[in-house]
Nucleic acid binder design. Sequence first.
DNA 1: AATAATCTCAGTCAAAAGTCTGAGGAGGAC
DNA 2: GTCCTCCTCAGACTTTTGACTGAGATTATT
Lengths: 215, 215
Amino acid sequence: MGIKVLLVDDHLVVLRGLRFFLSTQEDIEIIGEVENGEAAMKAVEEQKPDIVLMDLMMPVMDGVEATKRLKESHPEVKVVILSSFSDQDHVIPALQAGATGYQLKDVEPDVLVETIRKAAKGEKYLHPKATDLLMSEMTSDVSKETALIHDLTKREKEVLEQITLGKSNKEISNDLYITEKTVKTHVSHILSKLEVHDRTQAAIYAMKNRLFESS
Amino acid sequence: MGIKVLLVDDHLVVLRGLRFFLSTQEDIEIIGEVENGEAAMKAVEEQKPDIVLMDLMMPVMDGVEATKRLKESHPEVKVVILSSFSDQDHVIPALQAGATGYQLKDVEPDVLVETIRKAAKGEKYLHPKATDLLMSEMTSDVSKETALIHDLTKREKEVLEQITLGKSNKEISNDLYITEKTVKTHVSHILSKLEVHDRTQAAIYAMKNRLFESS
DNA sequence: AATAATCTCAGTCAAAAGTCTGAGGAGGAC
DNA sequence: GTCCTCCTCAGACTTTTGACTGAGATTATT
């Protein structure tokens, strides 16, 4: 028994093309073709594919949303995203939605087949550009704009960390054994140095730059 | 001219093995072998390889540290990690250090060759297990405690997003064309539903769970 | 010894945030 | 129609936050 694949794409040519070269593979069996995410939900329910090969840009229900819902209702089904160059913005959301693979449409046929085979085994396989984005997402922001934080004194960093834990001034004063007045002074200095207007913005800044363990 | 590769590993057998099957490739040229990170630094300086194929566990200077320093002094040199470990304690630091590829030592020869060729072109290529870790690192916390957010209405989610942008109630009221009173009502409901006490905690919650693009 | 930075605290205020109660209108569900 | 949810807004009120000024104590620097 081969790997049961459901094709999801709103362009007929793409569907035809995929069917054409996927059906030459002995271990792959195309069990259906649908043209949007909503139809994909139904098809998965009825036909129980192993793999859903899905486009991102589609009418009615896009690939990210469809992936998200699919993984909720049928976590065992593996989703492989097959997208075009243009929507790189959707790589991260798609992966977060639970996609097992990510390839671009200019992919070599045998690479796509390989991606499907790996996905069927639960292995992740991404296009280098997708991996690239994933890695830069990981490593960016971390060492980036940490310039302003260097202005903070030791104590101010401690207070900022408390802020990122969601504590109020009173709570901070308790935990650091200082008065609330002093906390306020520190907070004011922090806001000024980080060039933000309130503690929420300070917390956001700290988290985006991953200044502490918690973020 | 082939791809110039420097081998870095403290085990002689590994070096011999790598040289053996990499030298059968016409487009790959082994220009040196060293046995620790420190020696690698010198060798890179002198021999200007395109690729450094590096072990992680080494005496004197380990692979992560060596990668970090290499990318600082010679960012154009691509580092491919060849490790026997696929756990996150090794993979994540190595990638953050700037590795372009990551493969396990049980890799098929032709996959390793492929990894080197892709790395030479600047493309990232990781072992599926490494990709897996990278993704789970990204998506952890994400799909987790998103239960509470489902209680939020459409409008409340919009307001929460504004909060994660660091806006005040007044700014939100301007941008959403509603009164500040209404914003306050929404905020109160948001805090109650998310079971937090103030907007800062709400922002932290939203960012940790990556509820919006910005986070 | 003198300067500068840091940490601490206080008082005063204004502004912002958040709670609570109440309520009208719009739209969907039954 | 009726029920229910959502979005909207208001008034009254308390709490929290943050700005600004001023100042004593400690510590490191020069």
